[in-house]
Design a protein around this nucleic acid. Sequence first.
DNA 1: ACCTGAACACCGTTCAAGT
DNA 2: ACCTGAACACCGTTCAAGT
Lengths: 195, 195
Amino acid sequence: MSTAEPTIVTKRLRADAVRNRAKVLDAARAAFAERGAEAQMEDVARRAGVGVGTVYRHFPTKQALGEALVEERFDGTIAFVRTLLDDEPDPWRALERCFEHCAATQANDRAWAAALASMAGGTIAGPREHQMRELLALEDRLLARARAAGVVRDDLVVADMPALFCALASVVQAGVVDWRRYLELLLDGLRPLPR
Amino acid sequence: MSTAEPTIVTKRLRADAVRNRAKVLDAARAAFAERGAEAQMEDVARRAGVGVGTVYRHFPTKQALGEALVEERFDGTIAFVRTLLDDEPDPWRALERCFEHCAATQANDRAWAAALASMAGGTIAGPREHQMRELLALEDRLLARARAAGVVRDDLVVADMPALFCALASVVQAGVVDWRRYLELLLDGLRPLPR
DNA sequence: ACCTGAACACCGTTCAAGT
DNA sequence: ACCTGAACACCGTTCAAGT
């Protein structure tokens, strides 16, 4: 039951290596946002202006490169939900804004949408398990507030969230004409029973 | 605005070709159900006991082979919804059983779940467009009944269905612990407003 | 006509040679 | 220490040779 943060071993890198790593990440962000898992390593290298070997020096596999980008997105989402807990007094509005933020970021990033669709859907275990648990812990607080205020159905629990995130992510990812309409249906569906 | 059924050109096949085609389809059903798009053509050939070339003789690409299997699933689903319209007098129960049938079949077939997640989500256009439209036409009748009976929110329209199918499919596909719970939330969410 | 499987193409990954 | 890109492996697809 360790609560240790994941160990980050920041080896001192040579100046050119630091620059290259950043260029690879920039290129990868663009490539993965556009094409999701279909992004090609050769293309990432080309966009970054480095050889493929350099991409692999910084990230052992394509999978790992994708994970690094997803990790950034998780950080952003976790930070956003924290600000909701701190600054959004309306418990319903906070829940709404959380889902909306996820969807909006996913609309511009296929890999992020795909990651949340499969992560949230599958077992939580995996490379991003720690962040997923952290995000869910924050969601739990959003939900507790909402239940206490009576603005959501009282049987709604944090264990329901992964499926909801998965569902929303796949609708956004699929490029449905209007994910906002689906979000509306999803959110209305969380309201107290019976209608 | 042609209403012609898709032309089926059933060339007379040699007896061994008929057998091989069936063996390929059987093998492909198993492989695609288990592994979805990750199924391998070499593996399909091996399971079928034929050479890869034979698989390609009957289906020009892996994509096309997958489509053939999805086509079967659509036929099954369309037939099922027709029986609902004929035999299920309770309009709410009919809607419920329709979603449940989709989810249950998807739970045993990764390729089918993936197909519905991306088809229903993306633009309807594509190889299965005709079947998708047919299915949606049937859904439209289910919905019309349900609205008339006042058992669903009155702003729920058939255009909302693709997103709902997409969402459900991805939750089932992702192997979430309990897609039945998500289905419950989804269905409750379709009930008349305000709660 | 139809079948087979070796050969080819594409893309993820490695590694010997360079700076 | 880090970079490069040719070479290798894997899997989708083709096609010359067989029945």
